[in-house]
Simulated scan of single mutants.
Amino acid sequence: MKQVTINGQQVPAIGIGTWHMGDRPAQRETEIAAIQAGIAAGARVIDTAEMYGSGRAEDLVGEALAPIDRQQLYLISKVLPENASRQRMAASLEASLKRLRTDYLDLYLYHWRGSVPLAETVDELQRLQQSGKIRAWGVSNFDIDDLKELWQLPNGAQAVANEDLYHLGSRGVEYAVLPWQREHQLPFIAYSPIAQGDSWGHHLATNDVVKQLAAQHHVTVYQILLAWVIRQGDVLAIPQTSSVAHMNENIAAGELTLTPAELALLDQQFPAPTSKQPLDIL
Results as ranks from 00 to 15, higher is better:
M1A: 03
K2V: 09
T5M: 12
I6E: 00
N7Q: 08
G8H: 06
G8S: 09
Q10A: 07
P12Y: 00
A13M: 03
G17S: 06
D23N: 13
R24K: 15
P25W: 07
R28I: 14
R28P: 15
E29D: 15
E29V: 14
I35V: 09
A41Q: 06
A49Y: 00
A49F: 04
E50P: 07
M51I: 14
A57I: 05
E58L: 05
E58P: 06
V61D: 02
E63Y: 02
L65A: 10
A66M: 12
A66P: 14
P67F: 03
P67K: 03
D69C: 11
Q72L: 11
L73W: 02
L75H: 01
S77T: 00
S77F: 00
K78R: 01
V79C: 07
N83L: 15
S85C: 14
R86S: 10
Q87L: 07
M89Q: 03
E94Y: 03
L97K: 02
L100M: 00
T102E: 05
D103C: 01
D103W: 00
D106R: 00
L109I: 02
Y110T: 05
W112L: 12
G114V: 10
S115F: 05
P117W: 01
L118H: 01
L118Q: 03
V122L: 03
L128V: 02
Q130A: 08
S131N: 06
I134K: 00
A136R: 00
G138H: 01
V139K: 02
S140G: 08
N141R: 10
F142A: 02
D146A: 07
L150V: 11
L153K: 02
P154Y: 00
N155Q: 01
N155V: 00
D164Q: 06
L165K: 05
L165N: 05
Y166L: 14
L168S: 04
R171I: 03
G172W: 01
V173I: 04
Q181A: 15
L186P: 13
P187C: 12
F188Y: 02
I189M: 14
A190N: 05
Y191G: 15
P193M: 08
I194L: 11
I194C: 13
Q196C: 12
Q196T: 08
S199P: 11
H202T: 09
L204H: 12
L204V: 15
T206K: 14
T206Q: 15
N207W: 11
Q212M: 12
L213M: 09
Q216F: 10
Q216W: 09
H217I: 14
V219Q: 08
I224V: 14
A227P: 10
L236E: 05
I238Y: 11
A245F: 11
H246R: 10
A252L: 09
L258G: 13
T259E: 10
P260L: 12
A261V: 13
L263Y: 01
L265R: 12
Q269P: 15
F270W: 11
T274C: 13
K276V: 03
L282T: 07
